[in-house]
């Protein structure tokens, strides 16, 4: 059996629940599992992580919020000394970055954005979308060196902490960081990340102009949804790129995706077609989005969205 290191995430000392997804993937591969968590606040988060039935937990603090080279350097000796075969992280802005750095540092291999695993040990086959999801590929490792996997969020059943306790080892003191992030400005209060969202509402050209996006924003606030956008309105400068869903934006996987005033270009569909339920609202009944929507309403999004928010809130009471 192999040895596996899961690298969990934390923000301001609080462990992210995706730790349970990492453990789930580790158990699928099989082997002895240790954990690591990085950054300021890693001490507190490591105590939480220690509750996940792990052999031991590394708390790594290099004196900055994030550094690809620094974090990799800080944990590299422990990876070699511990004889780890696998490192598993989340496919997030920092997880994808650190995973790539670690794979290269150990002259190993990297499979990212994993949505499923079959088999176990070194023969494990990972399912990974290509072309933003237009194709689902099966990928294998062919190496004795370090194998690094990053998991697309919300694709593995998150295991709960078992309450067991693992020893914690501190790492990172004295690490030289070549490129370091010292400040993270938290998003506005109430902001829901597209990747974490159960409900997403996205606006397209149907909003008419930049001001029209307020109908999407209002819906999101009322219902507690994350906000998305089509490439068309990002390219028109109506909304920031961080909201874009699709092939050159974010790939999302919510329970409910509401596409309002979006025609449904193939690069947009690639980013949201794995949503559990898709609702399309468009005033043109020939819009291609209706071909992949579970439910469609032909109508004016400026009338439908506020009414939908009102009725969803009423239904929840």
């Amino acid at each position: 059996m192999g040895r596996i290191l899961i690298i969990a995430e934390q923000f301001q000392g609080k462990l992210k629940a995706s730790a349970g997804e990492l453990l789930s993937a580790a158990q699928q591969i099989g082997g002895e599992v240790d954990g690591a968590v990085f950054g300021p606040g890693s001490g507190d988060a490591a105590k939480e992580l220690a509750g996940y039935a792990l052999g031991k937990v590394f708390a790594v603090d290099c004196g900055c919020e994030y550094s690809g080279d620094g974090f990799a350097a800080a944990v590299s000796d422990a990876i070699s000394a511990g004889g780890y075969d696998f490192v598993i992280l989340m496919q997030t802005s920092t997880g994808r970055d650190l995973g790539a750095r670690l794979a290269a540092r150990h002259d190993g291999a990297w499979i990212n954005d994993v949505i499923g695993l079959e088999g176990s040990g070194a023969d494990v086959v990972a399912r990974k979308p290509l072309f933003a999801g237009k194709v689902i590929s099966s990928v294998k490792f062919s190496t004795e060196s370090l194998k690094v996997l990053s998991l697309r969020p919300r694709n593995f059943d998150a295991l709960a902490a078992s309450g067991a306790s693992a020893p914690i080892e501190q790492l990172g003191g004295g690490t030289q960081c070549l490129a370091s992030c010292t400040v993270i400005e938290p998003k506005e209060a109430g902001f829901i990340d597209l990747k974490d969202a159960d409900i997403i509402v996205s606006g397209g050209r149907g909003i008419g102009n930049a001001e029209g996006y307020s109908v999407v924003r209002d819906f999101a606030t009322e219902v507690g949804a994350a906000m998305g956008a089509s490439r068309a309105i990002v390219d028109s400068g109506w909304i920031d790129h961080s909201y874009q869903v699709g092939q050159t934006g974010k790939v999302v996987n919510p329970q409910l995706y509401i596409a309002a005033g979006i025609s449904g270009a193939i690069q947009h569909l690639a980013g949201m077609q794995t949503s559990k339920v898709i609702v399309a609202i468009n005033n043109s009944e020939s819009a291609p989005i209706f071909r992949i929507a579970d439910y469609g309403i032909v109508g004016d999004m400026f009338e439908v969205l506020p009414e939908l928010a009102r009725q969803i809130k009423a239904a929840r009471q």
């Binding site: 194709v135 099966s138 990928v139 062919s142 077609q273 898709i278 929507a293 579970d294 309403i297 032909v298």
Partner: peptide, 21 residues
């Protein structure tokens, strides 16, 4: 000598059109 190899590819299951309400 690649350490990562593609062993298969498929199209995602086609989403069946739903209904217009």
């Amino acid at each position: 000598n690649a350490k990562v190899r593609f062993v298969g590819a498929e199209l995602p299951p086609e989403k069946q059109p739903g209904r217009i309400i």
